[in-house]
Computed example of a mutant assay.
Amino acid sequence: MFKANSFLDVIKHLLIMGVIVAALVLGFFYFYLPSTTNHGESISVPKITGLQLQDAETLLEEQNLRYFINDSTYKPDQKPFEILTQDPAPGAKVKEDRKIYISVNMKNPPMIKMPKLIDGSVKNAELILKSYDLRKGKITYVPDLQQNAVLKQFVNGKEVKPGDMVPKGALVDLHVGDGLGETEFEMPSVVGMPVDEASVLLVGQGLQIGNIIYVQGSQEPDGTVLKQRPFAEVGAKIRVGELVDLWVAGNEPVQGIE
């Protein structure tokens, strides 16, 4: 025990204790800690994205670094076991034995549930496929009254239904309606009819009115159908949804101002 016989002795004892504490602090931070943590020594992280996992492992070992796979995904346009991401980034300064976190491309795609594309449009199907990491394949138009609507969906030539398991990244082929349908019937003749009645007749049979061409100088009353295309020949067939062009006597009606 120190004995303080005077105030001056107390001051001396405090100074000695302060020097000892300062020496301990300086020794810890400037001598002991640097010697145990390689203070001032760092390694530049190499770029390993794009490398195969085995090659990346070899490169990191040469730099006295380690790796840890914290994620894996499947990208069909990249090789299996390819490094997709790394953290820290290339060029970052780290200590020896630092762990580099990486994500790796899987060898086999995971299986996911097939989404419902049927009855939606092709554009809508493209958006859904992208959100599920699936790819649009071949589009085949087939006779159906639903124009541009997805009717069936296929993977590897096999029809798949919503909820069926398919590989992530798979190509999905689509059968899409052409808006015409399969039903064929004899082409009706509307020549000689007023254009309004002709239009009602054609639309009533599932046909569409195409171009209406007005012809001046005809002997027929204005508004009479002079010609049609397709022609109503014997044995001529037409499918539901097809267009019919009409040639009509008279001048084209002028939209009046109400």
Score class of each variant (00 low, 15 high):
1 M>Q: 08
3 K>D: 10
4 A>V: 03
5 N>Q: 05
5 N>S: 12
8 L>Y: 07
8 L>H: 06
9 D>N: 10
9 D>E: 14
9 D>V: 08
11 I>N: 05
12 K>Y: 13
14 L>C: 11
15 L>F: 15
18 G>A: 15
20 I>Y: 04
20 I>A: 14
20 I>S: 03
21 V>D: 01
22 A>W: 03
23 A>S: 15
23 A>I: 13
24 L>V: 15
25 V>A: 14
32 Y>L: 15
34 P>A: 04
39 H>S: 13
40 G>T: 04
42 S>V: 13
43 I>S: 03
45 V>P: 04
49 T>H: 02
50 G>Q: 06
50 G>W: 08
54 Q>G: 02
56 A>M: 08
57 E>F: 00
58 T>E: 12
59 L>S: 07
59 L>K: 14
60 L>G: 07
61 E>A: 14
62 E>K: 14
62 E>A: 10
63 Q>M: 12
64 N>Q: 13
66 R>L: 10
67 Y>T: 00
68 F>I: 00
69 I>R: 02
69 I>C: 05
72 S>V: 02
73 T>A: 11
74 Y>Q: 04
75 K>V: 13
77 D>K: 09
83 I>P: 06
84 L>H: 09
86 Q>W: 05
92 A>Q: 13
92 A>S: 15
93 K>Y: 06
94 V>C: 09
97 D>I: 01
97 D>E: 15
97 D>A: 12
98 R>E: 06
98 R>F: 12
98 R>P: 04
98 R>T: 15
100 I>E: 07
101 Y>D: 06
101 Y>S: 11
104 V>P: 08
108 N>T: 14
108 N>K: 14
109 P>I: 06
109 P>K: 03
110 P>W: 01
110 P>S: 07
113 K>Q: 14
117 L>G: 10
118 I>V: 15
121 S>W: 03
122 V>S: 02
122 V>K: 11
123 K>A: 13
123 K>E: 14
125 A>E: 03
125 A>C: 09
126 E>H: 02
126 E>C: 03
129 L>R: 08
129 L>V: 09
130 K>C: 00
131 S>K: 14
135 R>H: 13
137 G>L: 10
140 T>G: 00
140 T>C: 01
140 T>E: 13
141 Y>G: 00
142 V>P: 03
153 Q>T: 13
158 K>I: 13
159 E>D: 08
162 P>G: 02
166 V>H: 07
167 P>D: 03
167 P>V: 06
168 K>T: 06
171 L>A: 04
177 G>N: 03
182 E>M: 10
184 E>W: 00
185 F>I: 06
186 E>A: 14
188 P>V: 05
189 S>C: 06
191 V>P: 06
193 M>A: 11
193 M>G: 00
193 M>V: 03
195 V>H: 07
195 V>N: 05
197 E>V: 06
199 S>Q: 14
199 S>T: 15
200 V>G: 00
200 V>S: 12
210 G>V: 08
210 G>T: 02
214 Y>H: 12
220 E>N: 11
221 P>I: 02
222 D>R: 05
223 G>P: 10
224 T>P: 09
225 V>S: 10
231 F>P: 03
233 E>K: 12
233 E>G: 12
234 V>E: 15
239 R>Y: 05
240 V>W: 01
241 G>Y: 09
242 E>A: 13
243 L>S: 10
246 L>H: 07
246 L>K: 04
247 W>Q: 11
249 A>F: 04
249 A>G: 10
250 G>Y: 11
254 V>E: 13
255 Q>R: 10
258 E>V: 12
